[in-house]
Design a binder for these strands. Structure first.
Lengths: 354, 354
DNA sequence: TCTCGGATAGAAAGCGCTTGCTACAGCTGT
DNA sequence: ACAGCTGTAGCAAGCGCTTTCTATCCGAGA
């Protein structure tokens, strides 16, 4: 049936121990012996039994990357970058060793699924786990996640957060890379204010998520600094991070306050939906209404007009998270790094009509 | 240290065998005993050792989903849908059992990485593997993949292809869901021809990929049927499936043949780049040049003007692939199903100027 | 020539779980 | 009252690999 280490050993006329050592390259083996073993491996088309190996060695080469929505490039870009660094196959390096199996797990934004995936990864004795994207703010869930991560950590799993705020008690985590969502949100709205906008609608993400909250807080900070208070609730509509939601929410916004001169969206995808809604209402962008997004996903520059947004270095952050997970990079001081968000002013924002 | 089955058994005052059976629910256990065991599991915060379990049971709950580019929603959507069906956590069903760990592996379109991931999954004794997206057409690689899949298959792994043409010798595979790229490509170009276009440029995907070839063949079929031959090479530019490539290739196309009245892109992302290039040349869409894409990704309807494209039911196909991988759905006759591609006519195509 | 130490290879004891088989109740039917 | 069930639980043998400890072989130093 399946070829085992013993079969290889027999064919190479050595002991199983020797084959194992050749394969792991962590023990001196005479060149001639190694050669013989390698040939046998080849001849028999031998493939190591992962579970057996993990069991005996008490380690595994699985690395999990958790994302909220795999169909969203926001996560795809980070996950892809991380996976590249984690190496999976062909990281060019010498030989085996770095051969980690980087896998991405799609939680769909559901807390339960997030937890279950963590358990599954714990089962597999994952070498590392990278959590991407904003966290759900339910205290019970946060506690559960923290507890889980702590358990993972002291089972030897390296935990890295990417684009997610640090844990209350950061102990369990190798590093946390947090995006400056609040600062980005603030600068974006400041930009709009400086253009002369005063009635600014905000299409927010789902409630109870750190990303949503931070971006919104940045926005309100700027509004408040400009002395614009009182209308927060009326000019904010919440919804999921998708196009449809942006469309619907913007329609609602226009209903509540026909005089808005600018709409800020929770992210670029939502901004796309918002733009569509504005156009369907017969309004022009940016002449009648300015629109702004967040993230600077690849398609944003191709919107017409090109979308003003806040650029997050998703690829770089993902790659860095990958390296941290692999221990290829030393964690930032305190284990926490804030990733800057850069305002990208493009054609979708302009001064309001007078 | 870590809690083992034996610890749980001791605490519940039963044998390890019983604990195992309670956990797996595949053997009658008296309700009272089960209760006691479950409590012990809870008290001790026990987590099954995956590798040990897989080793002993000679199976694993890993399901691999291979994608070419995780940052591309084309793959993200399919992968997400598949993962949903595979259940991973919380598929709502009764209890454990369907608890598979669906993981997506990003090959980056590299044949070697594809192969390495397959080996890694083979190592892990994956329960199933779903390969998505077009295949590389290098014969050596195809042979290698086929061989690998055969090996996986007779190690008990269920192999499903999604959006990828069937293997030459389909034996190894549970099912192959192939997109009708050729038919879609043909209908798209027929649409353009029927509008009156004659000089149609084609921005193709990378060489040596089935998807690229099939879509291009469909296009040329239509052209030929309209009696338009001879200019194929000049009016075709190849490049990767990304925006940048679409931009550059379109510029090149306009250089080669300033009189093109329509540009067909290999996919929607490329079409976005093409549109940008056309605009940067000071031309209008669709008045001066029509543009069409392929896939109908979510953002395509939001392009301005909305993009004419070919809709591929990515979500449905991914979900079906997931179900097939789990054995929740019976394979199509012959193991092969062709997924229809539907022409979506929108604002980016119009009759050429006279 | 004899001893010692370095370099390799082998023996064997697990790693933590699953599962075929056996053991033992408590019933039923005769 | 006894054989024969059915329903539960335990025993123990692995699953295929890693790794510690031990054995061996050689050349080198004395």
């Amino acid at each position: 049936m399946t070829v085992t280490l013993a079969d290889v050993a027999a064919r190479a006329r050595v002991s199983p121990a020797t084959v194992s050592r050749v394969l792991n390259g962590n023990y001196p083996v005479a060149a001639s012996t190694r050669e013989r073993v390698l040939r046998a491996v080849d001849d028999l088309d031998y493939v190591l039994n992962g579970p057996a190996s993990s069991l005996a060695a008490a380690t595994s080469d699985l690395v999990g990357i958790l994302v909220n929505d795999i169909a969203d490039p926001f996560f795809g870009i980070m996950a892809g970058a991380a996976q590249t660094e984690i190496g999976g196959p062909g990281d060019g390096s010498g030989r085996a060793g770095g051969e980690k199996l980087a896998v991405v797990c799609n939680t769909g934004g559901s807390p339960e699924r997030e937890l279950t995936y963590l358990t599954l990864l714990q089962r597999q004795r994952a070498a590392a786990v990278v959590l991407t994207g904003g966290a759900v703010e339910d205290p019970a869930h946060q506690a559960a996640v923290s507890a889980k991560l702590a358990k993972l950590a002291d089972a030897g799993t390296r935990v890295v957060l990417c684009g997610r705020p640090p844990l209350p008690d950061g102990e369990a985590v190798v590093a946390a890379l947090a995006f400056d969502n609040r600062g980005g949100g603030r600068r974006l709205t400041e930009h709009l204010l400086s253009l002369g906008h005063r009635r600014i609608g905000y299409v927010a993400g789902p409630l109870e998520r750190t990303t949503t909250r931070h971006r919104l807080e940045g926005h309100r900070e700027a509004m408040r600094a400009a002395g614009l208070v009182g209308d927060e609730e009326r000019l904010t509509v919440h919804g999921p991070y998708d196009r449809r939601s942006g469309y619907d929410a913007t329609l609602e916004l226009l209903r509540r306050e026909p005089e808005v001169t600018a709409v800020v969206a929770a992210n670029d995808t939502v901004a796309l939906g918002a733009s569509a809604a504005i156009r369907d209402r017969g309004l022009r962008i940016p002449e009648d209404i300015s629109v702004a997004g967040f993230d600077d996903l690849p398609f944003s520059v191709d919107a017409v007009p090109a979308l003003t947004t806040v650029r997050l270095p998703l690829f770089e952050a993902g790659a860095r998270a990958g390296r941290l997970a692999m221990g290829k990079e030393t964690p930032p001081p305190g284990g926490i790094a804030t990733i800057a968000a850069e305002l990208m002013v493009r054609g979708s924002t302009a001064p309001p009509r007078v």
